[in-house]
Amino acid sequence: MAAEKFETSLKKLEEVVRKLEGGSLSLDDSIKAFEEGVKHAAFCAKKLDEAERKVEVLIKQRDGSFRKEPFTTDDDE
């Protein structure tokens, strides 16, 4: 699930930041860590921005299955 990936990604980002802040990495490793951190941050940001605020209404059909329709407040019963 996306949320799980998001969470692991966020955790990895946290780890990378802590390691970098520790200051014990070599320059090469620092840069690698930074690149990794940026990748995770970008992934998390993308996940956060993914939904574009759809508002739908779930309608149960005769055969028992469901159908989604855009929700409008005006033409309701």
Binding site: R53, V55, E56
Partner: peptide
């Protein structure tokens, strides 16, 4: 709040 959330309404 412009939260960027998908809403599914079950009436």
């Amino acid at each position: 709040r412009n939260a960027g959330l998908d809403l599914l309404i079950y009436p």
